[in-house]
Nucleic acid binder design. Sequence first.
DNA 1: TCGTTATCAGTAATGATTACTATTATTATA
DNA 2: TATAATAATAGTAATCATTACTGATAACGA
Lengths: 121, 121
Amino acid sequence: MRYSRQRELITDIIKGRCDHPTADMIYYSAREVEPNISLGTVYRNLKLLADEGVIITLETQDKKLHYDGDTSRHSHFICNKCGKIIDLFRPAKTPDEISDLGLKVTGERCIYYGDCTECFG
Amino acid sequence: MRYSRQRELITDIIKGRCDHPTADMIYYSAREVEPNISLGTVYRNLKLLADEGVIITLETQDKKLHYDGDTSRHSHFICNKCGKIIDLFRPAKTPDEISDLGLKVTGERCIYYGDCTECFG
DNA sequence: TCGTTATCAGTAATGATTACTATTATTATA
DNA sequence: TATAATAATAGTAATCATTACTGATAACGA
């Protein structure tokens, strides 16, 4: 993978913020530095970075992918009303423990990805 | 909410299978019983049923919503290669415990939904 | 039975994401 | 350092899951 100014910028933007931006949020942020960067470039690089494991994707219920520059193992809390995404670092994994943070949990989606027995017996 | 033959059929289909079908899988399944049912009707009712809490949505990495007729609290394992979705009922929640089932976990997305402190202080 | 209106079938529109293409920029090598 | 090979880009068109729209139909309370 060759160096590119645009990819470095995109990486810096994601790694430098503690929210969990969507592609278009990153796009607008990038245009402040690189006014001609294209949305396609943002999408292509986000996919690349996610494939490389440099960033993480978050499949939420708002139909847009969110990206997380922090690849350490942690969970997320999303507010039903304002949509804010809060990092939940360990130890804080059960709904009861999350409630203790002042967050009222109404739903939970926990998906593990990996290799199943049939594909990799 | 009025009764409708179409909605009952859709509900029966989801509740009657143990996989986690997408809208178009449910659509094709429904057409075998109700040949004129429309895709829009399937989508509208799936959304309704999910809003009512009768079924659950699964936001996966394949860009399509999957639906689960089992609303009891459980997690999911998705194979990176074949895409198969496996239910993980408690107790089986940590990656280590899942590995013991013969599934090799490579990634994890755990999202809690609820009300945050600012919105519902 | 009748009137109200939720629901439907069929189709058009939406919107996030991806693909395409001519051009530009990176980088290995002479 | 100049140059050739080719990744990467900007800009735009296409894709595709999902949602919205519209006139017709069906559920159901009075």
